[in-house]
Design a protein around this nucleic acid. Sequence first.
DNA 1: ATCATTGCAAACACTTTGCATACGC
DNA 2: GCGTATGCAAAGTGTTTGCAATGAT
Lengths: 142, 142
Amino acid sequence: MKITIANTEQHLRDHKIMPSVQRIRIFDTLLGTTEHPTVDTIYQTLAKEIPTLSKTTVYNTLKIFQEKGLVLVVNIEDNETRYDADTSFHGHFKCQSCGSVIDFAISEEDKINSLNGFQVNESHYYLKGICKECINKQSINN
Amino acid sequence: MKITIANTEQHLRDHKIMPSVQRIRIFDTLLGTTEHPTVDTIYQTLAKEIPTLSKTTVYNTLKIFQEKGLVLVVNIEDNETRYDADTSFHGHFKCQSCGSVIDFAISEEDKINSLNGFQVNESHYYLKGICKECINKQSINN
DNA sequence: ATCATTGCAAACACTTTGCATACGC
DNA sequence: GCGTATGCAAAGTGTTTGCAATGAT
């Protein structure tokens, strides 16, 4: 889902993060997409407008965002770490055909908040399968 | 949860996997533990009894098991790929203090099987927090 | 004899670290 | 001017690949 933040600079300040150009643009890139990009995707996207950008900075910045709770890590696949600026409770669906990762809504009632004496801090729901578009493509090809 | 398989050799044959010593022992190692080991943990465990064992073989074998549906990959953390011989529907809890990964039961009704036209093949539920043991330890220290 | 499995070594990809430079207040 | 952020290069880690040796039928 696409999230709206009125003022990224202020938003970063509110979370005690110095709003450098790199950090603002990295956060805005995450806000402006629904595809849960990887470090490399973010880097490739921004390298065009910030030619001096280093991948290290993208790594550092996302780590800070994560620590301050501005972004969530999406661990749906073992060989790709994706990031999501939508920190509200929702699920992720990965299409095994086209590879895209799509958000889906989960009602707050279905969220597991307690577990026999354990303290639950994060809940992640991941589904894998074939998305609607790929199902349609398959039926055309057959 | 600990799973019981009467005869690993036959079990592998049933899934069209040649039951080599390495494969049998790797599968039995997964069956004999509840800690969702990584490739390295499995390798370290078995290297004692099979000194010639190669990590490549552990990788290859787990990939085959995964493809044939004998094991599930647990992607709860971005920097560690864990494996689970229990392929039944259940959730995983990772303790952010001691690092252990613990199974928990989810009722079959809570499983998401359909999603507006998408074909769902796998459901993964991951929680993170502090386990009971670590909560107790903390209260002793304070 | 043939085909599959194993395991070493090298290659690879992703991520982190060390450190000098540049920037912001 | 001082403290932080950046970005290059190097190191580190986990995983895959190529290939020769070994093992099973």
